[in-house]
């Protein structure tokens, strides 16, 4: 019961913050709401017993990506002005499309999985001993470098991050004035 209340509060805050991100006129406020939304998602990860991912979410999203976005907003400062409309002229169509996508996903989900807590299938998270969940981080670390599992995607991700790092520097490098 208490878990359900926590879930509802966290997801309400997450969605509210997400709504502020896409509707607020002031980009800086939108970026702060984005941090709040990331925090809410980290809370959902904790409810899902994925503590490591919650910590990674805090470090990578709130610590790095949000700060990067705030930097970008400040470097394009003129556009923080609040007078003009934040939406383009397709926003009605975009809103209808998003609502239809949500309705379809929600309909399919509720057809397959029950709404009521405790009902089958997957009305409640399967009971797993705490030791198994704690060992999942160890397993994850081993799986990421094990040849049978994820070592190739892992290395590809490292190369991708390196390429993105160099690419970002090259793209943002100021052009030399003659």
């Amino acid at each position: 019961m208490i878990q359900q209340i926590i879930f509802i509060v966290i997801s309400f805050l997450t969605l509210l913050m997400g709504w502020i991100v896409v509707t607020n006129r002031n980009l800086f406020h939108a970026a702060l709401a984005l941090m709040g939304s990331f925090l809410g998602v980290a809370g959902l990860y904790v409810l899902l017993d994925a503590g490591f991912l919650a910590a990674a979410q805090l470090l990578v999203y709130i610590g790095a990506i949000s700060i990067l976005i705030i930097f970008a907003i400040m470097m394009t400062r003129r556009l923080m002005q609040t007078s003009e409309t934040p939406f383009n002229n397709q926003w009605v169509l975009g809103g209808i499309t998003s609502l239809v996508v949500f309705a379809v996903i929600a309909y399919v989900v509720l057809q397959v999985f029950p709404w009521q807590p405790g009902a089958q299938p997957f009305g409640a998270a399967p009971e797993v001993p705490g030791a198994v969940l704690e060992a999942s981080v160890t397993q994850l670390g081993a799986a990421l470098v094990s040849v049978d599992q994820y070592v190739l995607p892992f290395e590809v991700a490292s190369v991708l991050l390196l390429a993105a790092l160099i690419g970002a520097i090259v793209v943002a490098w100021p052009e030399k004035k003659e």
């Binding site: 997450t14 969605l15 997400g18 709504w19 991100v21 896409v22 939304s37 998602v41 939406f87 383009n88 397709q90 926003w91 169509l93 975009g94 809103g95 499309t97 998003s98 609502l99 996508v101 949500f102 996903i105």
Partner: peptide, 11 residues
């Protein structure tokens, strides 16, 4: 959350 983001990308 996905659809809120989708709306943001569209609008």
């Amino acid at each position: 959350l996905f659809c809120i983001g989708l709306f943001g990308v569209f609008a």
